[in-house]
Simulated scan of single mutants.
Amino acid sequence: MAPKIIVLGSTGYIGSATVKTLAQQKANITAGVRDPSKAQELVNAGAKVIKADMGLKQTELASILANYDHLYVVTPGHIDRTNLTLNAIKAAKQANIKYILVVSIPPADNLNILFGRQFTPIEKELKSSGLTYGLLRLPMFVDNIWGNAEAIKTQNTFYGPIDGSKKFVTVAVQDAALAAAVILQNPTNHANKTYTLTSDFSSSDEQAQFYTQALGRTIKYVSGGYEATKQALLKFMPEWQVDGILELYKLVENQDASQTTFTNDFKKITGQEPTTHAKWMQQFSKAF
């Protein structure tokens, strides 16, 4: 019998892509969301949708999770995400979940950055919970180029804070979703494992070349510096999150191992080749 899977944090980038992938694969998938009325897209994809989010009281959340075998906790983009995720882990333990998969980041143990301070206690709690677990450490996304879609369409240019020659790892959302779907349906070989998923290792200048080839016109990268990037990102997200992202870019500038180590974890999990920037832009070229 197929395991009953529930995803908490189902409406974000990673959560929704994972739910849709599981639904496409005919898994027994339930999307836990804060407001089911805003999750019609997941229903249309074939998932069951219920009200279940990390902000519920631990006992209430545990009573919901007790109906499922495997749990995916997509750590939310919320300033209190540490406590929200800890609550979900503790509820999973109370519910005797058979397997729990949690999203983290490559520099999870770096207490010198905001995101590291947020994720360190999450990983510590998970590993000491007694639950059979998996950790998916996700770097910055290939898909972040969507934020530059208008600039590419109108100026043939995309922007960022760092020198264009600095190489760094990224992961495609669709790759993260597929890897999670594979693990959640059959976690036997993924017990107490930590994976760092990477799809590409390239510089912004190299990405400009990939986009040029995919779009058939010259695309260039321009470093606008940190302050200009911050002001641009503040249009889409809160300041704490922007500051955290800029700290990741500073790690890239310093060529920190957390941002420059390419792994084969995606292929090990799925048996497939990852979605590079070149492949991604070919796939979505009509939008640019």
Results as ranks from 00 to 15, higher is better:
Y133Q: 05
D205V: 07
E150T: 15
K268W: 01
V33M: 11
Y226K: 12
E273Q: 15
P106W: 07
L178R: 12
R217Q: 10
P238D: 07
L215W: 10
T154E: 14
S104L: 00
A180N: 01
A66T: 14
A181L: 03
P107Y: 11
D175N: 05
G130A: 08
A191H: 10
I162K: 08
T157S: 02
V242N: 05
N110I: 12
I5F: 00
A172E: 01
S165E: 13
A27L: 02
Q213E: 15
A91G: 00
V74F: 06
T170L: 09
S128V: 07
Q40A: 09
W146F: 14
Y221Q: 09
K268G: 02
I79V: 14
V171I: 15
S285P: 01
D163V: 12
I50R: 08
T198S: 09
S203M: 06
Q283G: 02
G116D: 12
L101E: 03
V7A: 05
R217T: 13
P161R: 04
Y68R: 00
K4V: 05
Q155K: 14
G116Q: 15
D175Q: 07
N44V: 11
P76D: 14
K57Y: 08
D80S: 14
I122Y: 06
S104R: 10
T263K: 07
L178K: 14
G130W: 02
E123W: 00
G116S: 12
E60V: 11
L248R: 01
E125R: 10
M237R: 12
T154W: 04
T261E: 09
N144M: 10
K167N: 11
L61K: 12
Q185S: 01
G9I: 04
L84T: 00
L101S: 04
K250D: 15
K268C: 01
N87S: 10
I79C: 01
Q174V: 10
I79E: 15
T21V: 06
A62M: 05
E150L: 15
D53L: 07
S204T: 14
T82H: 00
D163W: 13
Q94P: 04
P139K: 03
N44Y: 10
F168C: 13
L65K: 05
N148F: 11
A214F: 00
S129W: 03
I97M: 03
E239M: 01
A31Q: 07
A181N: 04
A191F: 12
V19G: 04
M54D: 04
L131S: 02
I145L: 14
L178C: 07
A23G: 07
A232Q: 11
P161I: 10
D175A: 12
D200H: 12
T194D: 03
A17W: 08
V171D: 00
S223Q: 11
L84C: 03
I122D: 04
N148K: 00
P161K: 06
Q241C: 08
G160D: 09
F266L: 08
Q231R: 04
T212P: 02
